[in-house]
Design a protein around this nucleic acid. Structure first.
Lengths: 334, 334
DNA sequence: GACATTTACGAAAGCGATTTCGTAATTTCA
DNA sequence: TGAAATTACGAAATCGCTTTCGTAAATGTC
């Protein structure tokens, strides 16, 4: 079932059928109706590969998961972003191509080559920590790209991220308003990614309130797991020194770990220690007490990303980066 | 940068270049090396659309989210399955095409048409409740399909699901061995999908132990949300009658809801009521107490699905359905 | 009524690959 | 050494669609 079949059935040339498909004006009204009817009846759909070959447009958006979360759809925040993105981009007539990055046959993951291979019209890059350098090629290429949680600098690229500095400021202010002065930070043993922005901004923010972060209250986890948060808090308690009365964990998972450690030692949340996480993953609602946290508006992030990318593809505008506001969700833990 | 460029640079015909790309044997060793070198240096990659057009194979797997979870990547279990699937299918040389199903311009979601449009080599169908009828067309088509949590019957289709009946049996046995005889069920106000299998199997299993499910201990939620579980449990408590000593929730989220309601009334878990969920979503580890649940081996499910689909595509075998064993994860709640 | 426009359509040349088949050149073998 | 077999390559058709350009017929204009 191809364009030739339709043309033959309608008694017209394939050029005419093509013109009807693409809404050209130089087709007679009666002919158009006749061909349209046949297409409807036969359920004909033009081949995407032939169309792409001819037009160099694929109506496909490539999705790259870069850095530490390589290939991981299974990330509480990003899956929400990509989901919202997919919805919106679908409304705009595109489908999402998830690049596999498990192909050991290729020494290096050359995302640019893969984008060209599939002739994607645009690309979304979801970034964890330690993004691989090949992303830079994509960034600098002529393919419209939008980065999530990664700063892009290319002429056809832009990015979108939460205002991570503001997130920390909001938490500090929240603690301060509640009367807390003994405040700790549970962070990550790493110097890259959005969480490190949160950490430094948190310290800065404390300063602006005339507070300093005591070194022993700066807890460090080796990873983002609950286990990491648990261990860090255990160590702090074991050290026997005074504990902070409020703690900001740069990630909800870390907060859950800390929460467990605190409970094991009979400490109450928030009475003995107020606890605030970051990201607002689903589980915040299921924990006991429900975790106070900073909500990243993932739905908005995904939707905006799609809208921006669409604009870049179709009007080659050169947009500036987008910063999405976050919201403090005050629940039971602090 | 196309095959013609490479051919010109190497001083051979495009036919020869193509043969080298596709590992034909009738190419001289020296020529092969020379062309390969040029391809390497220029970073040339054949166009996917041209290749697909010529071969009718796209190296693409279509992913359809059908039924109640329409378009929702954001589902605790399925996202893990699709993630594992993506990994494995990537190793086998395929990429994943996520169909958008938000395109209002098409009255009905004709997945078969879209598969043909993109000439996907195979298709994975992730199914929630109330699957739309158009899935049947896909099922009966010549396109190799694998269903997750949906029974497929087509000649080129198969499916994979957890042994949901066994899941319930395991829970009943667990409760029984712990000495529980007063057992309740928290289910869904619906007659389709895997959870209803769990419900009926649970009742059957109780019977096999000589137990009956008291009607008032069969709690019903309108949806799968935590809120639903919370409300159902609230009502049961408000009714004032005797409470079961053990409860199986067909979904972890429902269990979390019930857990909250119980806590609000000062009831302890598991001392006053043992609670077991189903699916083992991440949050089970973060709840207090950690939720005893039945773990679906999503990693295995995704991997097996990919392997099966690959076999179906490449050896047109006609495989039988796969049932994946689940495992009871005994944690703090029951 | 003669000429200029407009309308409606089709022929044909791509797009970038694959694949069949033909054919020189080379090797094998009796 | 001559015929047969093998090797190494290329010409050309093909996949299904888009798009330019040409043209016959219909329409408009004065």
């Amino acid at each position: 079932m191809n364009i030739k079949t339709i043309a033959a059935m309608a008694g017209v040339s394939i050029a005419t059928v093509s013109k009807i498909i693409n809404n050209y004006s130089d087709v007679g009204e009666e002919t158009r109706r006749r061909v349209l009817k046949i297409m409807e009846e036969t359920g004909y759909r033009p081949s995407s590969s032939a169309k792409t070959l001819a037009t160099k447009k694929s109506s496909l958006i490539g999705a790259v998961f870069a850095g530490k979360l390589n290939s991981d759809l299974n990330h509480p925040i990003f899956v929400e972003v990509i989901n919202a993105f997919k919805k919106q981009i679908g409304l705009l007539g595109y489908d999402l191509l998830l690049f596999s990055n498990e192909n050991f046959f290729e020494a290096k993951e050359d995302y640019l080559a893969r984008c060209r291979h599939f002739q994607v019209d645009g690309c979304i890059i979801i970034a964890g920590d330690n993004v691989e350098p090949s992303i830079a090629d994509l960034d600098q290429s002529d393919i419209p790209c939008i980065g999530i949680d990664i700063a892009m600098s290319g002429r056809n690229s832009t990015y979108l991220m939460s205002d991570n500095a503001k997130i920390s400021a909001k938490v500090v202010e929240h603690f301060y308003m509640q009367g807390h002065r003994e405040i700790g930070l549970l962070g990550i043993d790493r110097q890259s990614g959005v969480t490190s922005i949160r950490e430094t901004a948190f310290v800065e923010s404390l300063k602006s309130f005339g507070l300093a972060l005591r070194p022993e209250w700066r807890l460090l986890s080796a990873d983002y797991s609950m286990e990491g948060g648990y261990r860090a808090m255990k160590e702090l308690i074991a050290a026997g020194g005074p504990l902070p009365r409020a703690l900001f964990a740069v990630t909800d998972l870390l907060a859950f770990g800390a929460m467990r450690a605190l409970k094991e030692h009979g400490l109450r949340i928030p009475e003995d220690m107020a606890l605030v996480g970051c990201d607002d993953i689903d589980a915040c609602l299921y924990s006991d007490p429900p975790l106070t946290t900073v909500r990243q508006d993932t739905e908005k992030m995904g939707r905006l990303a799609a809208l921006m990318l669409f604009d870049m593809i179709n009007h080659q505008i050169d947009p500036s980066a987008i910063v999405v506001e976050s919201e403090l969700m005050v629940r039971g833990s602090g």
